[in-house]
């Protein structure tokens, strides 16, 4: 293996910063503040104490912002209605690759509650999940999940948060929740609840900052923000949806 030059590298950077930079520990304390500022505290307070009416306003804002991004946002009353809407989408859409229709979804309490398996039974659509059994052969399971994800024309996820101002869903990567579900299938459906909607990125980062030190909520090895379907304008600046990722994206927002 080749030589890693970390120490000399960092040292050169330090030298380049000049003699007046001050001791590293003092600078470290200054640049990574322990306590979060008052502004963030106020933002967190606002998020936690949001009234139902304000949530509806955020939902309306999300729908406004989503439109131009070709992101479809549909409010639904409850999980059952979300399941019906998804079933309708499944009926409507044709697979992009191959003939067979199948779905892949996260293993997640909200999605479990949709009971898509029963709802889609009459269409004879297989619904795969990305649940892992830590006792069984991990590599074999990963292989199977990959095959199922690639074969599925629709991927269904939940999310941690949704940002109204940018029409963004935020997904930290938790166990049993495949990253490729929101990426490889041609249609991505995200199901969220109305209380997950935040106002803007500033609010989101205040929340993420607050959670970063609690391992169970904290940032895992991976997190993704998604604002609409995949798109490109690389040929003569002409917008085309579906460059590599999903061509279509839907968010169902459960009001109850």
């Amino acid at each position: 293996m080749i030589q890693n030059h970390r120490a000399s590298f960092i040292n050169r950077v330090r030298q380049s910063l000049g003699p007046d930079i001050g001791p590293a520990d003092v600078r470290r304390a200054r640049i990574f503040p322990e306590t979060s500022e008052k502004v963030s505290q106020n933002l967190l307070q606002a998020v936690q104490s949001r009234a139902p009416k304000e949530r509806e306003t955020l939902l309306a804002m999300l729908m406004d912002q989503a439109g131009p991004l070709h992101l479809h946002v549909t409010p639904v009353a409850d999980p059952a209605e979300a399941a019906q809407q998804i079933a309708a989408l499944v009926r409507q859409k044709n697979p992009e690759w191959g003939e067979k229709k199948s779905l892949i979804r996260w293993s997640h309490p909200l999605l479990d509650a949709l009971d898509l398996e029963s709802v889609l039974a009459d269409q004879h659509i297989p619904v795969h999940t990305t649940a892992m059994d830590s006792q069984a052969d991990l590599q074999g399971q990963r292989q199977l999940i990959r095959e199922n994800t690639v074969a599925s024309f629709m991927g269904i996820t939940a999310a941690d948060y949704c940002v109204a101002d940018t029409a963004t869903i935020v997904m930290k990567t938790h166990p049993h929740q495949g990253r490729a579900v929101s990426l490889v299938p041609s249609v991505h459906v995200a199901v969220i609840t109305i209380d997950q909607i935040l106002t803007n990125l500033t609010e989101l980062y205040a929340v993420l900052d607050d959670e970063k030190n609690t391992p169970e909520n904290g940032l895992t090895h991976h997190m993704v923000f998604i604002s609409g379907p995949s798109k490109t304008a690389d040929i003569e600046l002409t917008m085309v949806h579906g460059a590599h990722g999903p061509k279509e994206m839907h968010i169902f927002v459960i009001r109850a």
Binding site: T173, P175, H176, A180, H221, H222, F225, S227, K231
Partner: peptide, 30 residues
């Protein structure tokens, strides 16, 4: 307002997660 996809990557995915690379290398360049 925000790029379509923003990803945060902090390391390889644990083996008992359904997907993601099992090795992550970051090369920092001067």
């Amino acid at each position: 307002k925000l790029g379509g996809y923003v990803s945060y990557v902090g390391g390889p995915g644990p083996e008992d997660y359904p997907d993601g690379p099992v090795a992550f290398h970051l090369i920092i360049i001067d």
